[in-house]
Amino acid sequence: MSNAADQQRSPAPYLQVVRGDPSNEEVAALVTVLTARARATRAPRAAAASGGRTRSAWSDRAQLVRHPLAPGPGAWRNSLRPR
């Protein structure tokens, strides 16, 4: 075989329908679920590869947002405590 014949041949499919006749929407839904699952399992590995570093609480911008105050005994004391 020549190189031209090898280039024209399509690669082997990643998914193969063994039984039934799924619609294009069903195949797309399956691919979406499998992609999301693969990304979810890859995220912890990526975090471990980065050294497991976490963001410091000092750089967390959510701390700048005031939490709602809860009325009741000791509420004035809890109004200044960080959560």
Rank of each mutant, 00 (worst) to 15 (best):
M1P: 04
M1C: 08
M1Y: 00
M1A: 15
S2E: 14
S2W: 04
N3K: 14
A4Q: 11
A4P: 04
A5C: 04
D6T: 11
D6C: 12
Q7R: 15
Q7M: 12
Q8K: 14
Q8Y: 09
Q8W: 08
R9C: 10
R9G: 01
R9W: 08
R9T: 13
R9Y: 00
P11A: 07
P11M: 11
A12D: 09
A12T: 05
P13H: 03
P13D: 03
Y14N: 12
Y14W: 08
L15N: 07
Q16A: 06
V17T: 15
V17S: 11
V18P: 00
V18Y: 00
R19N: 14
G20H: 01
D21E: 15
P22K: 10
P22E: 15
S23P: 05
S23A: 14
S23N: 10
S23D: 08
S23F: 01
E25Y: 01
E25I: 04
E26M: 10
V27W: 01
A29H: 04
A29G: 04
L30I: 05
V31S: 05
T32E: 14
T32F: 06
T32I: 06
T32Y: 01
V33P: 02
L34A: 07
L34Y: 02
T35P: 00
R39C: 10
A40L: 06
T41V: 11
R42F: 10
A43K: 09
A43M: 14
P44G: 03
P44N: 09
R45C: 02
R45K: 15
R45H: 11
R45N: 03
A47K: 04
A47M: 14
A47Y: 02
A47R: 08
A48E: 14
A49C: 01
G51R: 07
G51Q: 08
G52P: 03
G52L: 09
R53T: 11
R53G: 09
R53Q: 13
R55H: 03
R55G: 10
R55N: 07
R55W: 08
S56W: 00
W58R: 12
W58A: 15
W58C: 09
S59E: 11
D60R: 06
D60W: 08
A62Q: 09
Q63C: 08
Q63G: 14
Q63V: 12
L64Y: 00
L64H: 01
L64P: 00
R66H: 08
R66G: 01
R66P: 03
H67T: 06
P68H: 06
P68S: 06
P68Y: 09
A70R: 07
A70H: 05
A70Q: 13
A70N: 02
P71K: 03
G72V: 06
G72A: 07
P73S: 13
G74H: 03
A75G: 02
W76M: 13
W76V: 11
R77L: 14
R77F: 09
R77I: 12
R77V: 14
N78H: 03
N78G: 07
N78I: 02
N78E: 13
N78K: 02
N78W: 05
S79Q: 07
S79M: 13
S79Y: 04
S79H: 05
L80A: 10
L80I: 08
L80V: 03
L80E: 03
L80D: 02
R81G: 01
R81E: 07
R83G: 07
R83H: 04
R83A: 10
